[in-house]
Design a protein around this nucleic acid. Structure first.
Length: 525
RNA sequence: GCGGGUGUAGCUCAGUGGUAGAGCGUCACGUUGCCAACGUGAAUGUCGUGAGUUCGAAUCUCAUCACCCGCUCCA
């Protein structure tokens, strides 16, 4: 990390306005609404020219540090890591085995009065008839949440009262779920929470997975899903990786790719999007070593986010409480989130990356579902035993990471013309440097272009010859460009240029032939 | 999904029933010679969208979409 990027502590989240950050993202071409000219679409965002560079830099830094140059593990050995790139659409059996189909597929019903939400198949009702001596019949609806027995018990007094003095008391149509009731029945249905009648909405599907159809025929047989996480691609190819890559436990498989979740409420700019990109590691270990590897990944992932510029009080590591753990993690070594204090979550935090001990839940589930079972256990040569490896999963959001970088970089500064600058870590900055001829004549543009052509072979740099130098500096401040090199009349005499530092506004002169070395030193190649 | 708010040029906003505007930014030319300087000129609008009321709608009504805030949801 350079001195500049760490010069003073991060801007407190509370003083940053999300509206201002969104406005800058739009104005400078970081992030736009998808399909904006048609009014946009809820939960989908596009990256513009600066945004795509920033997000690529984030993903490439991750891939470099995770796959190409991982560190040493808790056992003191270099970590073994390989990458994969799996498809978004997979055999739908994958999602049955993983528990995504079925578990999160139920129609839900909301109460308009008390805002409670229920699964429609848990809401049941039955119409009762009671005939009295004069053959006039009386009917009433008993409704509630749970099994018929529970509902009857809950409505015991009401039933006794209504059936009093009547004969031939019965419910001829039996119990029906809320979804099976007609409009009249739904209107009489009492909310189990607040007791109001007719306040429940129509049942609505909350399908977290996007569905599509593969092939020409659109029927149930051809129904497929857009993956809601990249992890399952890794799990299903685990055995191929083991057979072809000479890896042995402990080792990791990494993947960067799009995932899709049909969120009920996309919110907070790109934070909760329906289409988003994940950077996931599944790290396979011996079951008895889960604890030390969990701690290793928890700590190293936290340090990594610090290393790319999220170093201040706005980043925190939070261990999950037992109650909030997912079904597969209840007995595990732990689950934690690495969280960032976004302006819209402040003073709270929002998740950037989750590190979870998933045990052997996924590998076992796929081994069972595909019918091969224990034959798919991993063979540990050294220990001469077979087992399903446990998994530590560090799963990060590329879009959330990009958003955190944007929020962290946003630095109001009334002392400079732009009023704000983006203090990106140089490694992540979309544009590494700008090259300016002080004026667009007297041989300066030619020198500038020559320097530009040389530097762009290695870094994303820009040349700008238009307008006065102040405007060009101001534009680069909003783009977050850490260095500007200016060619002036002295350059033509002594072969030096000025370097203007984004964060301090200081200038220094260095040799024209030293510029590339300067950038290598500050940014890396 | 519920409740509240917002929506006019790239940005910030003015415009309360009668010709769609300003500042900034952008672009061109000139000038300038290190921090959005100066001069001249130019481009830029489905007034979020669609209906309705009206002789006439950015303006009033309804619906809808998007964004923001609060609930809810987030395996």
């Amino acid at each position: 990390m350079t001195n500049e990027s760490n010069a003073n502590s991060a801007t407190p989240a509370a003083t940053r306005s999300m509206d201002d950050i969104v406005a800058l993202c739009r104005r400078r071409g970081f992030i736009w609404q998808s399909s904006e000219i048609y009014g946009g679409i809820n939960g989908f965002w596009d990256y513009g020219p600066l945004g795509v560079e920033l997000k690529r830099n984030l993903k490439e830094a991750w891939w470099h540090d995770i796959v190409r140059c991982p560190g040493k593990g808790p056992d003191g050995n270099l970590i073994d890591m390989v990458g994969v790139d799996c498809t978004i659409i997979m055999n739908p059996k994958v999602w049955e085995a993983s528990g995504h189909v079925g578990g999160f597929n139920d129609p839900m019903v909301d109460c308009r009065a008390c805002k409670s939400r229920f699964r429609a198949d848990h809401l049941i009702a039955s119409e009762f008839f009671a005939e009295d001596a004069t053959n006039s019949d009386k009917r009433f609806l008993i409704s509630g949440l749970g099994e018929p027995k529970e509902v009857l018990e809950a409505n015991k007094k009401k039933l006794e009262k209504l059936s009093k003095g009547h004969t031939d008391f019965r419910n001829p149509f039996g119990w029906r779920s809320f979804a099976e009731l007609n409009a009249d029945g739904r209107a009489k249905f009492q909310c189990p929470e607040c007791g109001e009648s007719g306040t429940l909405t129509e049942p609505r599907q909350f399908n977290l997975m996007f569905e599509t159809y593969t092939g020409a025929i659109r029927d149930e047989e051809s129904k497929t899903y857009l993956r809601p996480e990249t992890a399952q691609g890794i799990f299903t190819q685990f055995w191929n990786v083991v057979d072809t890559s000479r890896v042995k436990v402990p080792f990791g498989i990494a993947q960067v790719g799009k995932a899709f979740r049909n969120e009920v409420t996309p919110r907070n700019f790109t934070f909760r999007s329906r289409e988003f990109e994940q950077m996931e590691i599944e790290f396979f270990i011996r079951p008895d070593q889960a604890s030390e590897w969990y701690q290793y990944w928890r700590d190293s992932r936290y340090e990594w986010w610090k290393s790319i510029g999220l170093a201040g009080d706005n980043l925190q590591l939070r261990e999950h409480e037992k109650e909030e753990l997912a079904h597969y993690a209840k007995e595990g070594a732990g689950v934690c989130d690495i969280e960032y204090r976004f302006p819209f979550t402040a003073p709270g935090f929002g998740e950037l990356e989750g590190v979870a001990h998933r045990a052997d839940y996924d590998l076992k589930a796929h081994a069972t579902a595909c019918g091969k079972g224990d034959k798919l256990r991993y063979f540990d040569q050294e220990r001469n035993e077979r087992y399903f490896p446990h998994v530590i999963e560090p799963s990060a959001g590329a879009d959330r990471g990009t958003l955190a970088l944007l929020c962290e970089a946003y630095t109001p500064d009334s002392n400079r013309p732009s009023g704000v600058y983006m203090k990106f870590h140089p490694r992540l900055a979309p544009i590494k440097a700008a090259i300016f001829p002080l004026v667009n004549k007297d041989g300066m543009p030619e020198v500038a272009e020559k320097l530009y052509m040389k530097l762009r072979q290695k870094w994303n740099v820009q040349i700008d010859v238009k307008q006065n130098i102040g405007k060009r500096y101001a534009r680069m401040d909003e783009a977050g460009t850490p260095y500007c090199f200016t060619i002036d009349s002295d350059t033509l005499n002594d072969q030096t240029v000025t370097v203007r530092h984004r964060d301090t506004l200081q200038q220094e002169r260095i040799g024209l032939d030293k510029v590339a070395a300067f950038l290598s030193d500050k940014i890396g190649d």
